[in-house]
Computed example of a mutant assay.
Amino acid sequence: MSTARDRQRRRDELRRKDLQRRSVLAGEASAATAEVESALTTPNESVSAAFFDVDNTVMQGASIFHLARGLYRRKFFTTRDIAGAAWKQAYFRFVGVENPEHVEAARTSALSFIAGHTVGELQEVGEEIFDEAMADRIWPGTRALAQLHLDQGERVWLVTAAPVEIAQIIARKLGLTGAMGTVAEHVDGVYTGQLVGDMLHGPAKAEAVKALAAREGLDLSQCAAYSDSANDLPLLQLVGRPCAVNPDVRLRRHAKTHGWPIRDYRTGRKAARVGFAAGLVGGAAAGALAAASTLREKRR
Rank of each mutant, 00 (worst) to 15 (best):
A284M: 03
F130T: 00
R299I: 14
E45H: 05
A161R: 05
K210L: 03
R7V: 13
R9E: 14
W260P: 04
Q152I: 04
M199G: 12
T118Q: 06
H66T: 07
Q147V: 09
D53F: 01
R269H: 15
A206W: 03
V249A: 12
P247T: 03
R7I: 10
T257W: 06
H254R: 12
K88Y: 08
I170W: 01
S229C: 07
R107D: 01
Q20W: 13
A32F: 04
A277Q: 14
K298S: 15
E28C: 01
A285Y: 01
A68R: 11
L212N: 10
A213R: 00
T3S: 15
F94N: 09
I166L: 10
R273Q: 15
S38P: 08
G279Q: 08
A110P: 11
A68T: 06
G178L: 02
P140F: 04
V196D: 13
A286Y: 01
W260S: 08
M199I: 13
L19H: 10
A167F: 00
G181T: 09
M59N: 05
F113E: 05
I64E: 09
I169N: 00
T177W: 04
S227H: 08
R269K: 14
L14A: 15
V164E: 14
R241S: 15
L295W: 12
D188E: 10
Q222L: 13
G193A: 09
P140G: 09
F130Y: 12
G279F: 01
R11G: 11
G61L: 10
A292I: 03
P100A: 03
D55G: 00
L235W: 00
G181I: 02
V159D: 03
I262H: 12
R296S: 13
E185Q: 10
E98H: 06
L280W: 04
A29L: 06
D232S: 08
L289S: 07
A50L: 01
K205V: 05
D219R: 01
G27A: 07
T267Q: 12
Q20M: 11
T267V: 11
A285E: 03
W157N: 04
A115D: 07
F92S: 08
T3M: 09
A105R: 05
A224S: 15
E121P: 01
V249E: 08
E98Q: 11
G279A: 07
G70K: 02
G96N: 02
V183G: 00
A34N: 01
G217S: 03
V159P: 00
M59A: 07
P261D: 14
G240H: 09
H102G: 02
M199L: 13
R10N: 15
A184S: 14
Q222P: 13
A110E: 10
V36R: 15
A204D: 08
